[in-house]
Structures are given as structure tokens and as C-alpha cells.
């Protein structure tokens, strides 16, 4: 969420948000049917360049957000590496059974999570939520009541966080003691979740009634504060993606890094 973070807008910010979302979703679905880790490796290098130099955010932000990617790489690959099925045994100790097939399949899964993670970060860092919802109303014909609800709900989040802190302080002042173990966790969740939910539902209800009174749910012939259209930046983005897909495909056939081409 790029609300209080300062950044330099780049051409990626100017792409139509709905177009960006649809293109990336299509890419995601397409990547689910790619079973060649070499291809993913080449994809990552391209996307990483875009992520590092294209978002216009400061290095600190880019670096911090990249840290969880390594954890994701590990957590999505290790299960398959240690416990996956395969024929060529490399290592066996108790339950852990690493085979050649499972190793490369694990690496493939890790790479895939990285591609998805990088693309998502790229999207999140270069798209303002407000523009995304205005654009879905204008280009994808999403009903305004959905789009405005999303935007109103996002604005309510800071209030919820503040309420959470007040609640925590209030419970501390009153010296609430929790039981040990699972029971204590249950008590804790209950003490926090119910007031938070009840209060948020009440507030959401009040805001929604006001919004309905102001015709935010009106469908036809509405005017918009922000106008979003298509530009040639969209074409450029699409072109770059397609070219990079082709390059990755050619490279993955010509210069293989991993000695497997099909991990399924």
C-alpha cells in the first residue's frame, strides 16, 4: 500500500490499473502450466530488473520488501525437496528422502513463488488502490457499490488499528490475566475479536447508510472524480512482457541451467 511512502512515479504507475491487473492475472494462470524451471529462472531475472529499477521507490523499501521473498522461496520449496516423490535417491535420513526429481520440483516451486511474489510486489508498489477501483468501475464496469465499498473499507483500516491499540491498553490497565496454553489463546482472541468486530460492523453500517443516502450505489450515468483511460504505456508494458516471455522461452531451450526440463 503506497499511502505514506514517498516515491518517484515511473511509467509503470501510468499503466491502466485494470489492464495491469488482468495482464498479470492471465500471466499467473499461464505460469501454472509451465513445468520448466529454466524458463522460470529467466522470467525472474527480467522481472527482478523491473522490480529493482522500475518502481521508483527508495532502495530501502525495495530491499525490505524483498526479504520475505527468500523465506517464501524456502518455505515453498523445502517440503517438496524433503518429502517429494522420486526415483533417484540423493539422501535419506528417517522421514527425509531427497531425490533428484523432488529436488528440482522443489526448486521449481520456489522459483514460481518468487515470480508470483515479485510480480505482486511490482503491482502493489506501482498501483494506487484508489486508481485501481476507479479504473475497475470505468473499464471493467464493476458496480460502483462494490468499488466504493472497497475504498471506504480501506479508509476504515487505520481506525481499526487504533481501536486495537486502545483495546490492548485498556486490557493492560485493568490487569487482565490469561490462562496458559490454548485456552489462554482462545480467551485472548475472544477479548479482542468481539469488540473489534462489533464496533467495526456498527461503524460500517453507519457509513454505508450515509453512502446510500448520497447515492454511492447509483449505477447509471455517474460522473467520476478521476478519469482513467488507456495510454500507449499499456501497449509498451504488454510488448515488454511478450518479448520477455519469448526470450525466456528461447533461452530456456538454448542455455539450460538446471538439467531437467519437465518437473511435473
Amino acid at each position: 500500500m503506497s499511502i505514506s511512502v514517498s516515491y518517484q512515479p515511473t511509467w509503470l504507475h501510468q499503466i491502466n490499473p485494470s489492464f495491469k491487473l488482468l495482464t498479470l492475472t492471465a500471466l499467473f494462470i499461464g505460469l501454472l502450466f509451465v513445468h520448466n524451471p529454466n524458463f522460470l529462472l529467466y522470467m525472474i531475472t527480467g522481472i527482478a530488473v523491473l522490480y529493482l529499477f522500475g518502481t521508483g521507490h527508495r532502495w530501502k523499501v525495495i530491499g525490505l520488501l524483498a526479504i520475505p521473498l527468500t523465506i517464501i522461496f524456502l518455505s515453498s520449496s523445502t517440503t517438496m525437496i524433503f518429502f517429494g516423490e522420486g526415483e533417484q535417491t540423493w539422501f535419506k535420513f528417517g522421514l527425509i528422502h531427497i531425490t533428484e526429481e523432488s529436488f528440482y520440483r522443489g526448486i521449481h516451486l520456489g522459483l514460481r513463488s518468487m515470480v508470483f511474489g515479485l510480480l505482486s510486489l511490482l503491482f502493489a508498489l506501482t498501483t494506487r488502490p484508489v486508481y485501481l477501483f476507479y479504473s475497475t468501475m470505468q473499464q471493467l464496469k464493476l458496480k460502483p457499490k462494490y468499488a466504493y465499498s472497497f475504498m471506504a473499507a480501506i479508509r476504515m483500516l487505520p481506525i481499526i488499528v487504533e481501536e486495537f491499540q486502545t483495546l490492548r491498553q485498556a486490557l493492560k490497565v485493568r490487569g487482565v490475566q490469561y490462562s496458559k496454553g490454548v485456552k489462554g489463546m482462545y480467551e485472548k482472541v475472544k477479548l479482542y475479536a468481539i469488540p473489534l468486530l462489533a464496533q467495526s460492523i456498527r461503524r460500517a453500517h453507519r457509513i454505508a447508510v450515509a453512502m446510500e443516502a448520497k447515492q454511492f450505489s447509483k449505477n447509471n450515468k455517474r460522473t467520476f472524480y478521476y478519469h482513467l483511460g488507456y495510454t500507449n504505456k499499456d501497449l509498451l508494458f504488454f510488448f515488454i512482457l511478450v518479448v520477455w516471455l519469448i526470450i525466456s522461452y528461447v533461452c530456456s531451450n538454448q542455455f539450460t541451467v538446471f538439467p531437467v526440463e519437465y518437473v511435473r
Binding site: K145, Y146, Y148, S149, F150, A152, A153, I154, M156, L157, I160, L197, S200, I201, R203, A204, H205, I207, A208, V209, M211, E212, F216, S217
Partner: peptide, 13 residues
């Protein structure tokens, strides 16, 4: 209605 939608989204968030 808009009320249902907003409340659902807030709960989900």
C-alpha cells in the same frame, strides 16, 4: 445492498 457489501469487506479486512 451497499450496506451488506461494506460490512462484508470490513469483516474480511
Amino acid at each position: 445492498t451497499l450496506t451488506d457489501i461494506l460490512i462484508t469487506i470490513v469483516i474480511a479486512f
